[in-house]
Amino acid sequence: MQKTQHFKPVQFIIEVGILVVIFTLVQYLISAGLLNQYYQINLASICINIILAVSLNLINGFTGQLSLGHAGFMAVGAYASVIMTTYMELPFIVGIIAACLAAALAGFIIGVPTLRLRGDYLAIATLGFGEIIRVVLQNIDYVNGPAGIMGISKLSTWPWLFGSVVITILVIVNLVNSSYGRAIISVREDEVAAELMGVNTTKYKVLAFVVGAMFAGLAGALYAHYFYIIKPETFNFMKSFDILVMVVLGGLGSTTGAIIAAIFITVLTAALQSFPAIRMILYAVILVTVMIYRPQGLMGNRELGRRTFGRLWGDKK
């Protein structure tokens, strides 16, 4: 897999083709009214959770920096986009860009000082920043404090959601597989050795952090424009934990794992709705059981990709 692969036009076309087919199929189902609202909502949740999990996985899984403040960046993105679209009445794309930039900026401001901390100290510092963002939002009258902003137009349509997921995955996967990515992974494997080999570890840690935060902001913008209301309480540390659960459950450092876990957790949450009394107990039991039997996560740090499916397509590898 590490060797350069030759460009295989047929395969490339097949893959793009399948993406297009999935997109059009769901789009058709939605516009023909065949996919009821409940499935649509869960589909949106799945897309948003995939973006969150994949982006946190870049920070926690590939860079090895334990961050517990992901919900904070999501909040920054959500509020930034809503200020653009609902307050200033600008188009959604402006909101999305504003969300990404604001969250990336927040990631930079928070990342530069805190990323020199290690392990649990970093975890608690990021948790702290996440909570600070929430408390500050709660005290800003411009965004209605704890009541939050309601009446946000539903602009996160299927093309936006699907497109965002594809872009997030493509950017992060390609980042991880670039020379930057190798530097980032070297930080996780052994920070001191990486430093000695001439890798500017701080730079790569901040880079991963900023990119991760940016996509969390994107997820925040999509969330805000799907679920009609945002309020600071939604983005508290429990939300950060939820995202962390997905990442660890999928397998740290596995993008496919993060995606599978995001789908799994969203579907599990929805499926447990019908057992209101014991919902959270079941969730807890499932979580603990999965972790005990599969501590490395569903995928470990492997990826599900061409290697697994190459054979199906007659690849030699």
């Binding site: 999935i22 199929l25 499935y39 869960n42 799945i46 789908i263 579907v267 599900l304 990709g305």
Partner: peptide, 23 residues
């Protein structure tokens, strides 16, 4: 990039199947 695309395709398949089964 194509490896990623294939991975993505698989995920989205699962996504649609699982979402369909959930309820």
């Amino acid at each position: 990039i194509r490896r990623k695309v294939s991975m993505l395709v698989l995920m989205l398949f699962m996504l649609s199947i699982v979402a369909g089964c959930s309820q």
